[in-house]
Design a protein around this nucleic acid. Structure first.
Length: 464
RNA sequence: UCCUCGGUAGCUCAAUGGUAGAGCAUUCGGCUGUUAACCGAAGGGUUGUAGGUUCGAGUCCUACCCGAGGAGCCA
């Protein structure tokens, strides 16, 4: 196996003058009369290793299968590069083709492909410049998330993926069953399905959020976070939605909405700074190819204070903007994409945290304000991407929470344990959810969420 | 799910209702260090599918399939 010091990223920064073995996949090959140039990449960094092979060193038969996509092992001497564009290069002496990639049928070429075409080759798009950069950024982002919370004493909770709680009725859920779909057991002939015979003895689903379970842990471990996959069975087909996506949900006891906002802001800035420090070449590629303003935008977010504006004030700004809205703005209605974009991209030109939404448009567990009309909710809106974080201070008062559950038309019996948390040792607490893929989009400038997750699941698509 | 746009060579795209083309890729040849190398030649097509209008359809009409963007839902 490849160990530290042997990756191509290590070879590229090592002192010339020693023998080296390079293993990887061929990005492209260029031939001249007496010399071959092979660009080799092993995914360890954005840059390729340039291997130079004199025509006399290997036979024409040996070099022939070294084509785009082939996997090779090349031994040689690392030398100072004669050409421009790289500091060192490998002067190849022996070439071993571990796996060829016949160019007549290999779907990737050295020429540029569009992202839709690459998506059809999900098993090979990982070898392209764009997806190499995307998944290195994604990896560093995941690392930074754990680092951020671990440094602050947060406990990592594995919230369940299988659940029997219907959450807050938010979004359609994937049902999970072991019943024979061709022969469903019925309570009476032709009647309702008998779920007592199902695996869990009642209907079960894939989770849409780990929040309620995270609250259980916050009320014992103080500060906790979840980081795992979540599922929505919505038939939504947009560049921002997936049926399976990852979410980070911190939950903090002894915390109100102000603390929640502060953590969200610190968190986003930390993530941006970490990726800028650790994925420089990848980000420069995105800036060059996809989003010219990317680096300036990220620096701006990392260094500027987020705007904080109550919903009521946000509505006033929108009403007084003089804009013609496709969807009219009025107090009590949810903000539309166009409204969110105006606030973050034009009014403030930086991330905006909108707080204290009308209770009718938010979930039952959000803490009621004294005004009786709004709840302690917050949405973090980012320029170019819209809502990236949604969260709230939770309702910790038992009677108020019961009233809100009833108002929402939900059955309090299903929330017995959630209510128990308010009966025994309740405390003000708060938390939020960050869509992991949306953060990757933000950091890379990629415009379609299907291109920032290894294997996208969307309606009608679960290939690979 | 609704609305809009699109589907032509392996890829990216041209083609007033009148013989389907280019660049790149591929194959072959050339070139003393290239950076999406360069130069020359060749092969490569049931124009998404099924119908229809027409003397004649890549082009017009209908249905369906697939893709993208916008909306809703949200992260």
């Amino acid at each position: 196996m490849i160990r530290n010091g042997q990756y191509i990223k290590d070879l590229l920064v090592s002192e010339p003058g020693h023998t080296a073995v390079a293993q990887g996949w061929v990005k492209t090959r260029r031939d001249s009369k007496g010399v071959h140039f092979v660009q080799l990449n092993d995914g360890s960094c954005f840059a390729d290793l340039q291997v130079v092979i004199d025509a006399g060193v290997v036979t024409a038969e040996a070099i022939a299968p070294v084509t785009t996509g082939a996997c090779v092992r090349i031994t040689g001497t690392l030398v100072e590069s004669l050409g421009k564009g790289q500091a060192v290069e490998l002067r190849g002496e022996t070439v071993e083709v571990l796996g060829d990639a016949p160019p007549e049928t290999y779907p990737l070429q050295k020429k540029r492909h569009n992202l839709e075409t690459l998506r059809e080759f999900g098993h090979f798009r990982t070898r392209s410049n764009t997806f190499g950069a995307v998944f290195r950024v994604r990896n560093q982002l995941a690392y930074a998330i754990h680092k951020f919370y671990q440094e602050r004493g947060f406990l990592y909770v594995h919230s369940p993926i299988l659940t029997t709680s219907d959450a807050e009725g938010a979004g359609a859920m994937f049902q999970v069953t072991t019943l024979d779909l061709m022969n469903l057991p019925r309570q009476q002939p032709g009647g309702a399905i008998d779920h007592t015979q199902d695996f869990f003895g009642r209907p079960a689903y894939l989770t849409v959020s780990g929040q309620l379970e995270a609250e259980i842990f916050a009320l014992a471990f103080t500060n906790v976070y979840t980081f795992g996959p979540t599922f929505r069975a919505e038939n939504s087909n947009t560049p921002r939605h997936l049926a399976e996506f990852w979410m980070i949900e911190p939950e903090m006891a002894f915390c109100d909405l102000e603390g929640n906002q502060t953590l969200a802001e610190e968190f986003l800035k930390y993530l941006i700074t970490h990726v800028m420090d650790n994925c420089k070449a990848d980000l420069e590629f995105f800036a060059q190819r996809y989003e010219p303003n990317l680096l300036a935008m990220l620096e701006n977010v990392a260094s500027s204070e987020f705007a904080r504006v109550p919903y009521t004030e946000a509505v006033r700004i929108l009403e007084e903007s003089g804009r013609q809205w496709e969807f009219p703005v009025h107090w009590g209605s949810d903000l539309q994409s166009e409204h969110e974009r105006y606030l973050t991209e034009e009014t403030f030109k930086r991330p905006v945290i909108v707080t204290d939404y009308p209770k009718e448009i938010k979930a039952f567990y959000m803490r009621a304000n004294e005004d009786g009309r709004t709840v302690r909710a917050m949405d973090v809106l980012a320029p170019g991407i819209g809502e990236i974080i949604g969260g709230s201070q939770r309702e910790e008062r038992l009677n108020v929470l019961i009233d809100r559950i009833r108002e929402a038309g939900l059955d309090e019996k299903h929330y017995w344990w959630y209510l128990d948390l308010r009966r025994y040792g309740s405390v003000p607490h708060a938390g939020f959810g960050l869509g992991f893929e949306r953060m990757v989009m933000y950091l890379t400038g990629m415009k379609n969420i299907r291109d920032v997750i290894p294997f996208p699941r969307t309606p009608g698509h679960a290939e690979f």
